[in-house]
Each structure stands twice: as C-alpha cells, then as structure tokens.
Amino acid sequence: MSALLEVKGLTRYYGALKAVDDITFSLPAGTILGFIGPNGAGKSTTMRIIATLDVPTSGEVLLDGKSLVARPDQARPLLGYMPDRYGTYDDMTVFEFLDFFARAYRLRGNERKARVDSVMDFTGLMPLKDKLTSELSKGMKQRVALGRTLLHDPKLLILDEPADGLDPRARIELRELLRALASQGKAVLISSHILTELSEICDTCAIIEQGHLLATGTVQEVLSRTSNAAAFSEVELTLWAGAGMPLEEIARKTERLLLEQPLVTNVSVLNNALRFRLELAVGATPASGWVEEASVRVLKVLVNAEIPVTSFRTREHDLEDAFMSVTKGRVQ
C-alpha cells in the first residue's frame, strides 16, 4: 500500500535541545498509527510539524506526495488537526461553531449546510446542535472538536491525546468513530498515554522517546518483536484450596519455593493466587523462548513439591510491555 504520509529524517532543535531526532516513518491511507511516548518524548512536536504548525530543522514530510515543509498552504486542506486542547468557543452553539469553521474552510451555501449536517450526524451531535459548547461534557466537546477536523473532509487526521480525560464510555465511542473514519480511507495519526486503548484502536504504532523513534510497525509486529526481546514476563498461578492443607500455608510454601528459583522476582500473594515476574539479569540478552523455558522449570518444581496448582499462565505481552521493553534503560 502506498503511503499517504511519509516522514523522512525529521529533526527539530529548540536552541541546543534536540526535541525530535531523525524520525522516519510512513502511514498508508485507511490505517491508524498510534504514537506512543512519555511526556516530552517529542510526540507533540512531531505532530505539530506534520500539522504545519512548526517547521523542522531538517528532514522532509510528504503528504499525498506534496512537501508540507516547502508548501504548508497546499498541505493544509488535506489534513485535520485536533490538539489536546479542544479549542471551542464557549459562547457559541454546536451548530454555530461548526458552521463558523465550515465558513473558514470556504464552504458556501447549501454545500456548507450539508457538510455541517453530515458531520453532526456522523459524530452524533445532531441532538445537541443548539446547545452552547460550554454546556457540553468533555466527551461531547471532544466530539465537537473531532467534527471540526472533519468539516473539510481531510485525508489525514492528527489527533493529539484525544482520549485524555474521557470516561470509559466516551473512549469506546471515540474508538468506534476512529475505526469508522479509517474504514472511509482516512489515515489517522493518534497519540495517547493510554497504551491499552491504543492497542485496540491502532493498526500500526511508533514508539518515541527523547526524540528518537525506537520501534515502528504493525502492532503485532512490534508486540512479537518486543515480546521476544523482553527481559521480563509477568506470571500468575492459582492454587486449589481443598488439598488438605490450609490455603495460607500452601501459599507461604509456594512463595518460599518460588523465591528460591533463579529469575523469579516480585512474588506477591493474593488469596489463592500468586503473581511473580520472570526476569533476566541486567545486561543479559533475551534468547528466543527463554520465558517458556523458565516457566516450565518453575512449574516442574512446584509439581514436584506437590503444590496444588490449578492454573499457570504468563500474561500476554501488550503495548505497555512493548513500550517498557523498548525504552528500557533509556527512560530518565
């Protein structure tokens, strides 16, 4: 699939500070890319450059083949940007707000009315069209902001922390809206701190830290790459309470046994369950399948000691683990 957005060697200095360092990635139409990184990692700077609000010190950004560094005016009609602050006017109704921005996008007469109606319909704002934006909940304000970015039917949507501060329901609704937009062929670049949220929304992800792009690819690629390379894994096991021995005693015995095993750390007991971490020594290189091998060894010890284990599972690697794994040793 050809890329709608291509970012090549993007670098941005602020004085002596290198906020973005040689970032390269691409985003095809119809896909959602999650931009992951802690505060100050360079996410917002990168997004602002792509949104033509800032200029790179070096590097190139092509949107639909056009350089948005050289000609930002030509790129703007193709992109919609939603900053972390929604930027609504409190003394305007939802309709007035969208109508005003539609005018600003030079939509005229019936075309404008049709477009505003269609956006309100898509974002579910029609019942609220006469409500002042100041009277809306955060989730609804966010919909208004999303609606504003859709007015001119852009090919690329840049959403900076759109899920921040939203309740679970609003997040689910946002996810559905973004999925619908991607299915319409729009490319979506989205940043968030909530990594579990992103893994459910995104097709691809890019992990950035201290201005460096540490990993990029489809979510599955990044997960499989990082899970193989991870130096730790979380494990949970449950015990059977009817084994003729008090549960507390079994749990204590299990905990003792686990702590005697190499690579086992962070053991915690919770009723009939125990959680622990299998973790390689600092500096050790993770070999392929080391988690499975260590798990089998631990389980064997427990079975030999007649511990009544009813379940034993390693927690599935998610984006949060991937992020921690990739940034390990680099987080300040």
Binding site: D73, R76, P83, R85, G87, Y89, F101, A104, R106
Partner: peptide, 10 residues
C-alpha cells in the same frame, strides 16, 4: 489556541 485552528483552515 483557537487561532492555530483558524490558521489551519487557510
């Protein structure tokens, strides 16, 4: 920061 959004409209 609404001026930013206005600028993006062209």
């Amino acid at each position: 920061e609404t001026w930013v959004l206005l600028t993006l409209t062209g």
